[in-house]
Amino acid sequence: MKASELKEGEAGIIKNIESACIQKDKMIDFGIVNGARIMILKKLAFGDPILIKIRETLVALRKKDLSCVNVEGVDE
């Protein structure tokens, strides 16, 4: 499933990042890479923008960018 479909407070393990993703380089620098755990901390109204936690880093980004990250193993 897409990381942007996770609900507030849910987390998942990153399976892959689509290569068409515009922010891919930046995401990788921030450690949004395969195998990392990503957690949704906050979604503003209508689910955009989104605040995520990756390791110890808090990142704010847009729904369209997060939707090209695929995750599996949803947990709370």
């Binding site: 922010q23 930046k26 921030f30 605040l51 808090l58 990142v59 704010a60 847009r62």
Partner: peptide, 10 residues
């Protein structure tokens, strides 16, 4: 040119 929004919250 779409706008970029991708920032760290320190």
């Amino acid at each position: 040119k779409g706008s970029d929004f991708f920032i760290e919250l320190p």
